[in-house]
Design a binder for these strands. Structure first.
Lengths: 105, 105
DNA sequence: TAATATGGTTTGCGTCACAAACTAGTTTTT
DNA sequence: AAAAACTAGTTTGTGACGCAAACCATATTA
């Protein structure tokens, strides 16, 4: 198999991270440890539906970890970046800077 | 009319620029003045079809200027960023850095 | 004149991001 | 105690769009 996934360490922008909404989400999660759904919701300004589905994809990709619990009899969902997620984000940032910085340098 | 286009000077990433292929194209065009189709083609690694349609969109948006001529009896198409295009790209870069750099700084 | 190359454009399909509708349970109101 | 409204998300329907493949027009070579 030839190494050329959407994310890998080739010079392409991981689409899972690059998509605007998810870029916002990941940038927020990158600033700290566990964050609640509601916090990410208001910080990013996304709708609940979209936040929910984007989160599901990030979890499925192993970039984000999900924690569900009941607090005061109500459900509470929290997220944090996994190590893989943080690394992927770092790599994405590096790639973006190279790309937009010009081929020759 | 309330200023909130896809590109405007609000804190969102202009989708016309943010899309990976076009981000590559614009980054390349940003490095110089007129560039030929074939050059952009090999530099970005896109297929001809996709390059063609992306260029059409960028031209339609007023971000890129198109120049068609015949050289040695063969068609030649060249492109360059317009002033608006360069400005939009600068603004995009600024926005991206703010966004991914964290809310608090 | 048939094949091959050059320089693109157009088309069809599959993915996916978004808003809207829905689910499940809790608290408040009447 | 039933209904209404609120909390905390999840699921669904659909339009937009990015991609590869097919196509077109002209020029060159065999």
């Amino acid at each position: 198999m030839s190494r050329s996934a959407g994310n890998g360490h080739n010079g392409t922008l991981d689409p899972l991270i690059h998509e605007s909404s998810r870029l916002m989400i990941i940038s927020v999660l990158n600033e700290g440890p566990w964050m609640e759904f509601g916090f990410v919701l208001t910080t990013t300004g996304l709708t609940k539906g979209n936040l929910s589905t984007h989160m599901a994809r990030l979890v499925a990709a192993g970039y984000v970890e999900e924690w569900k619990e009941f607090v005061d009899r109500k459900p509470r969902t929290s997220y944090r970046l996994t190590r893989r997620g943080r690394e992927a984000f770092r790599h994405y940032q590096k790639t973006w800077r190279q790309l937009t910085g010009g081929k020759m340098r």
